[in-house]
Amino acid sequence: MKPKEKRDRRDFVRGASAVLIGGAVLSAARNRSPRLVWQIDPEKCTQCGRCATHCVLAPSAVKCFHSYSICGYCDLCGGYLRPDAKSRNTGAENQLCPTAAIKRTYIEEPYFQYTIDEDLCIGCGICAEGCDVFGNGSMYLQVKHDLCVNCNECAIAHACPSDAFERVPASEPYLLKSDRERRIS
């Protein structure tokens, strides 16, 4: 074999090794950086309604969450009843949720439990607004990660007027009010 040919092969092996090693190092580094997903900070959310209209999915991947540890189980729930409700019952004309996604269940006098039907919820946040104004803020919006397709440029985050959307680690994908309370306490 001629010396020039020998050198060429050596150079090729060196180059290929460098590419392989570099790739492996980059890949390892990428695996170590946490995967991030979109989530709504409930403290910043102003329930503007854009979560319902700007998600690439229809209905939106944003849903109402209910923190039972914060809820007062009120008969006169501000998240369930319209401000001008004629009476406190399950009549459609009294319900604040336009899609009737909140279910009201009697527990004992005078307490009621409110549960969210995710299939009906479109993430408009009107219940969260009512609960925030008159109740304890136990109803709030979160991105549901079994529905979210995790777009790189989240359309809702782009439209959010209060900058409430943020990237969080996929290992802790929710910003729950009850968890926050537990951490504070």
Partner: peptide
């Protein structure tokens, strides 16, 4: 056209009160 605003039924206003 998909990003229209929510309708009147989604308004939450206490201005009247």
């Amino acid at each position: 056209s998909r990003r229209t605003e929510l309708g009147k039924g989604f308004d939450y206003s206490l201005d009247e009160y």
